[in-house]
Amino acid sequence: MNAKHIAIIDYGMGNLHSVASAVQHVAPDVKIDVTADPQRIADADHVIFPGVGAIRDCMAEILRLNLDKVVADVIAQGKPLLAICVGMQALMNRSEENDGVACLGHFDGEVKYFSDSEEFKVNANAQSTQSQEVQDHLKVPHMGWNQVNQSIDHPLWANIANDSRFYFVHSYYIEMQNAEKRAGECHYGLGFTSAISDKNVFAVQFHPEKSHKDGLQLLKNFVQWDGKVS
């Protein structure tokens, strides 16, 4: 049997070395292809859709390289797809970043700015009065290790304790319309969706490739996943 083939979609936004090396670390035998070539992505057994940076630039490159169609095909074919950070945000309807950017629309929901949320503003500044434990105004970006509450059982959460901490770095968060597709929730001044599950698609706001043992476990689970949710 041939080695499993994993494509990491490369649209020129950010450094994919971390994702590739983390996957290779947990699955030394898989063949990893960092590529924008539609054919090579179509040939892969599993696909990872990462992303960092501004959504406007990300979406522009995704469309320029016709990756919108490629991602739609991967989803339609039932192939396991893992979207990370801005890759996850790109699957939503729309982002408020860069004065509003239309996204791929695979999931109903919007990507919003923490500091624009009234709930966030109230909580961000109220914390210091709660006790003499000085917890100062919440910073944006939301940067560091936060707990993810697993909303559902899922093969990608296998061997990961509920409320484990993962590494986040983002200023925009996802507000989901459809709670049924929520796979994980996080709290930072407000509650937000930090993981989405829909058939063969799993999307995370945090960076599993930077999240130590639990992040590596999630990547390992992804490599072993058949794309089905029991």
């Binding site: 919440l138 939301h142 560091g144 290790w145 936060n146 707990q147 409320d163 709290h187 930072y188």
Partner: peptide, 8 residues
């Protein structure tokens, strides 16, 4: 529950 303070 919240963001952890980091040690670097």
């Amino acid at each position: 529950m919240g963001l952890a303070k980091r040690i670097i």
